[in-house]
Design a protein around this nucleic acid. Structure first.
Length: 209
DNA sequence: ACGCCGATTCTC
DNA sequence: AGAATCGGCGTC
């Protein structure tokens, strides 16, 4: 007998309409689920970074609205997907009110459903806690790419964001964001303390000392 | 039109 | 420390 699919309760859009640095830690422990034709993969979010609109030098929205970052200027709860280094996809949850271009990069997660499919996508030799460790590994494990750009995560689509269960307690830590050259010391990365699925910190090699 | 470089990852 | 690999964005 097949087990039931993960319970899906949409995240509160009013919460996501708050500023990215406020929303980011609230997303730790939340669940992101992708139900595709291949099957369903779900993760518990363990690491995030906030990017706070046109005022944030590290944000893709720093120099204003373009075709690439347009989704970030839209309403909260949608998915901003961007292509990185010619080979990787990374996913952000748009936050803040419409026209305020902020978002939270989902950097890592623990696979809680569909591990066999996630491993098929990531490579059979990849250890369990590395299946969604790092933003590009996470999208690969979940099967997220350009076709999911702009998806409403609260709108009953294949991609769904569910809140952290009230019973689940998480201890968070925070520090500077990974790999950014500008604003390299702003501590807008949050993670679940001690969790092995969290990626490792690397400072941008060109960031000011 | 041209060139640099990145919210990365993997290997040496 | 360096490669892979390409689209976006600034500059000429």
């Amino acid at each position: 007998m097949e087990e039931p699919a993960p319970h899906l309760l949409p995240f509160d859009r009013a919460v996501l309409a708050r500023p990215a640095p406020e929303v980011a830690p609230l997303l730790l422990g939340a669940q992101l689920t992708h139900a595709s034709a291949q099957g369903t993969v779900a993760i518990t979010i363990t690491e995030v970074e906030a990017y706070d609109g046109e005022r944030d030098p590290a944000s893709h929205a720093y120099r204003g609205k373009t075709a690439r970052n347009a989704v970030m200027f839209g309403p909260p709860g949608h998915l901003y997907v961007y292509f990185s280094y010619g080979m990787h996809w990374c996913a952000n949850i748009v936050t803040g009110p419409a026209e305020y271009a902020s978002g939270v990069l989902i950097r890592a997660g623990r696979v809680t459903w569909g591990a066999p499919l996630a491993r098929q996508r990531r490579g059979m030799a990849v250890p369990e806690h590395h299946l969604a460790r790092g933003p590009a590994c996470l999208t690969q494990a979940l099967g997220i790419d350009r076709t999911h750009a702009g998806t409403d995560l609260l709108g009953g689509s294949a991609l769904t964001l569910s809140p952290r269960p009230d019973s689940q307690v998480v201890t968070t830590a925070n520090g500077p964001r990974v790999g950014v050259r500008l604003a390299a010391d702003v501590p807008w990365r949050w993670w679940i303390a001690g969790d092995p699925t969290v990626s490792s910190y690397r400072r941008n090699h060109r960031a000011s000392p």
